[in-house]
Amino acid sequence: MAGVAVSTTINGDSVEYLCQPDETLLDVLRDRLGLTGVKEGCGTGDCGACSIILDDRLVCSCLVLGAEAEGRRVETVEGMAHGDSLHPLQQKFLEHAALQCGICTPGFLIAAKDLLAKNPDPTEEEIRFGLAGNLCRCTGYDKIVRAVQDAANVMKGA
């Protein structure tokens, strides 16, 4: 099957790739571009481990075709830190031990970044519902919610 040529922007960089028409953006990111920080937990949009921001919108990259990224902006966990300085969410996830196994962490970080971009001062309930599309099986979410609250406070002060 002939590949589809795609020009897109990923984490601020121009990227071009060929993909199959039925290939998901998740598979493109992981298998063609080596961005394995984007995780696959289900492939059906239920777990949020593959969360990315596509033109300011939080999506599951397993539910987007690689071809659909044409001309758009893609943001993954790999783009969150600047040089060796971590994003406040990344730093707070570490300080609060908001991860145990860590497989859901990239998705949570991206979802939390999107949440705070839209609502810089969320209540606990808004955080809980804002992150309800991301599954974590290790933490019981307690420390994740606290990390996001703390990061929101830091980012407000910045």
Binding site: I127, R128, F129, L131, A132, C136, G140, Y141, D142, I144
Partner: peptide
């Protein structure tokens, strides 16, 4: 499985 909005702080 439980999601974030299903649970209180523990």
């Amino acid at each position: 499985i439980p999601v974030c909005s299903d649970l209180p702080m523990i």
